[in-house]
Simulated assay, not measured.
Amino acid sequence: MIIDAWGQHPTLRHSQDPIFDSLRRWTKTEAPTEQLPVSVTIAMMDQAGIDRMLISAWVAPRNVMISNDEVAGFVAEAPDRLVGVGSVDISRPMDAVREIRRCVRELGFRAIRVLPWLWEVPPTDRRFYPVYAACVEEGVPFCTQIGHTGPLMPSEVGRPIYLDQVALDFPELVIVAGHIGYPWTDEAIAVTTKHENVYIDTSAYTARRYPDQLVAYLRGNGARKVMFGTNYPMFPPAAALKDLDALGLSDETRALFLGGNARRVFGL
């Protein structure tokens, strides 16, 4: 089974947001003018042999790009293929806690994701702490982004070392840190190695662009700590997997990386 640990089925609000203009320079694509059907996302998954994709809501300050209810609607169209990941407004802590409970108990979501760069504060900011507590209580992972940002926003808040303090304060919290952590990949590996419940996903990078130290970690004692992700629709899943064979993974490690770790961590 191949599981994409980081995707999103975008709304037009998300796809057309000016914050992603810098990414379009890389992908050489124009902002879409029509809503993407769920059937297109499923077809892209089929093309790459992706069995399941975790798709996330996007909540930013005063801007809901993809709502939790929209994610639930997308999942309802393909419940055997798509898995919901919620997001919340950290500026309203009690509303955030109540929304996390709703996401898990009523919408059936398997994780919560909040991106520090969207809020321009590190994950040690006090506004995150009720979110962490709620995730622990509801038994779902907290997903976030580490490393530099493609959008023209400050990258410092994505330093992986911030998660060291979070994991010390919330040892029961399962943290999935997406986007590898470049240019602080060594920090990401150190934090993941130190803390039992911290993981890395490779979203936003194709296999041929994984840093050498991450590949070495994946081949060695990080085999159970790294999971595959795409950041779809930024990358088609097939493109993200294209050079996988060049990584030289054993059959066991390859199976864990592509799906086994995500299946275990997200309870799929």
Rank of each mutant, 00 (worst) to 15 (best):
G147D: 02
F109M: 15
T192K: 01
I146L: 10
E70L: 09
G158Y: 07
P79G: 09
R264L: 04
T11L: 07
L163P: 00
V97A: 07
F20P: 04
N68T: 11
I112P: 03
R25P: 00
G229Y: 01
T144E: 02
H148Q: 13
I55K: 03
G158L: 09
A204P: 05
I100F: 07
V176T: 01
A177Q: 08
T193D: 09
V215L: 14
F74L: 03
V176I: 10
Q8I: 12
Q165E: 06
I112W: 04
D46N: 15
L168M: 12
Q213M: 13
R98H: 12
V166D: 01
T41C: 11
C135G: 05
D46I: 10
S15N: 13
F266L: 07
D251V: 08
A255N: 10
Q145M: 11
A48F: 08
V85G: 04
L244N: 07
T124Y: 03
R52D: 01
R102V: 06
M153F: 13
E99M: 08
T193I: 05
G73T: 06
I146G: 05
P151H: 06
L163Y: 15
Y199R: 03
K225V: 08
I90E: 11
M153K: 15
E34L: 06
T11M: 08
T253D: 06
R92Y: 09
P237C: 07
C143E: 14
V64M: 10
H195W: 05
Y129H: 15
D212A: 12
A48M: 04
A96P: 05
R254N: 02
V38H: 05
V191L: 05
I100D: 03
N221V: 06
M94K: 12
L168D: 09
A111S: 13
P141H: 04
L256Y: 05
D17L: 09
G229S: 05
P122G: 06
V40A: 11
R113T: 05
I112Q: 02
A223N: 14
A133S: 12
A223P: 05
T33V: 10
L118Y: 15
V104N: 03
E196F: 03
R264I: 02
L107Y: 03
A190R: 11
L241E: 04
D21I: 09
G84M: 09
M234P: 02
D201I: 06
G220Q: 13
P160A: 06
L152P: 00
A167H: 00
D212F: 07
P18H: 09
I50W: 04
I2G: 07
V83T: 08
A60H: 14
Y217V: 00
R219L: 02
C135M: 08
L168Y: 12
E137T: 12
Y129Q: 07
A43S: 14
A43M: 02
V176Y: 02
R98P: 01
N68K: 13
F74R: 15
